Computed example of a mutant assay.
Amino acid sequence: MTDFHKFGGIAGLIAAGTYLFGFVLLLSVLEPAGYGTGDIVTQAKFMAENQLTMYVWNLVIWILNAIVLVVLALATHDKLKEKSPAFSQVATSFALIWAGLILASGMLANISLGAVSQLYLTQPDQAGTLLRSLSLVEEGLGGGNELAGGLWVLILSWGALRANLFSKPLNYFGILIGISGLSTLIPTLAPITGAVFGLGFIGWFAWIGIVLLRN
C-alpha cells in the first residue's frame, strides 16, 4: 500500500462522514427548527438567526467534501490507470470538475449566508429576493443535478469492472449510483434518484475508502 492510497482511503471515509453529518444535522436540527419551510423571507430570517449552524453545515458538506473528494479521485485514478488508463483519465476529469462545482457551491453558500443575514436586518423582503437568486445559482452549480458526480462514479466503476479491480459488488453498486445521478436530470425522477444518489454515496465512499486502506 502506498501512502497516497492510504490518504485516499482516509479521504473516502471522511467524504462518507461529510454526507452523514449533513443528513443528520438536516433531519435532527435544521428541519425541526424550520429550515426550508415557509416563504423565502421566512427562510432568510432562519438564516439570519442561525448563522453559525448554517456556516458549519456549509463548511462540512461543501468545502470539506470537495477537498477530500480531490484526494480520493486521484487515489482511485492511481489504482486504475495501469489497467484501464482511458477510463481512469475520463473518470478523474469528471471527479475534479465535480469537486470544483462543490467547492464553488460552498463558497457561494457562505457568501450568501453573510449577505442575506446582513440585508435581513434592514430590508427583509429584499433579503428574500437575494436569497432566491443566490439559491438558484447554488442549485445550478452543485445541488440541482448530479451530472458530474454521476459520470465520475459510473465511468470509474465501469472501468474497474472491466479491469477486474476492486470488487464486483462495489463496482455494480457504483454503477447504480452513477445511473441514479444521471437520472436527476429528469425532473420527475430527481426527488427519488437524488435521494438514492446521496444516500448511496455514503456507503460507496466508506466502501471504497476501506478498500483503499486494505489494499
Rank of each mutant, 00 (worst) to 15 (best):
T53L: 13
K45I: 09
S28A: 15
A33K: 09
P32V: 01
P32R: 07
A33Y: 04
P32G: 06
A33I: 00
N58P: 04
A66R: 04
G36S: 06
L64D: 02
T37E: 06
T42P: 04
I61W: 00
K45H: 14
I40V: 06
G34I: 03
V56D: 05
L59V: 01
G34E: 02
G36H: 08
N50T: 15
G38I: 01
Q43R: 12
I61V: 12
W62F: 12
V60Q: 02
M47E: 01
L27K: 13
E31M: 14
L30K: 10
L64R: 02
L59I: 00
I40W: 03
A44S: 10
Y35T: 00
N58Q: 01
E31T: 14
E31L: 14
L26N: 10
L52F: 14
A48R: 14
E31C: 11
L59C: 03
I40K: 00
L27E: 11
M54F: 05
G34L: 07
I40Y: 01
N50M: 15
F46R: 07
Q43S: 10
L52I: 12
I40L: 01
W57T: 00
M47D: 00
A66P: 10
K45G: 13
E31V: 15
D39I: 06
A33V: 00
E31P: 12
L52Q: 13
M47A: 10
S28L: 15
V56G: 10
L30V: 06
I40H: 03
G36R: 06
Y35V: 04
P32M: 05
E31G: 11
V29E: 07
V41I: 12
V41C: 11
V41D: 09
P32C: 07
I63C: 07
L52S: 13
V56K: 08
Q51H: 12
A44T: 07
T53H: 09
Y35K: 06
N50K: 15
K45M: 12
I67N: 03
A48S: 15
V29W: 13
L27T: 11
A48H: 12
V60N: 04
M47S: 10
M47T: 04
T42G: 09
L26K: 12
T42C: 01
S28D: 11
I67G: 04
D39Y: 07
Q43W: 10
T37H: 09
I67S: 05
M54T: 04
I61Y: 02
E49W: 12
A44V: 05
A48W: 09
V29T: 09
Y55C: 00
A66F: 09
L30I: 05
N50W: 14
T53K: 11
K45Q: 14
N50Q: 15
A44C: 06
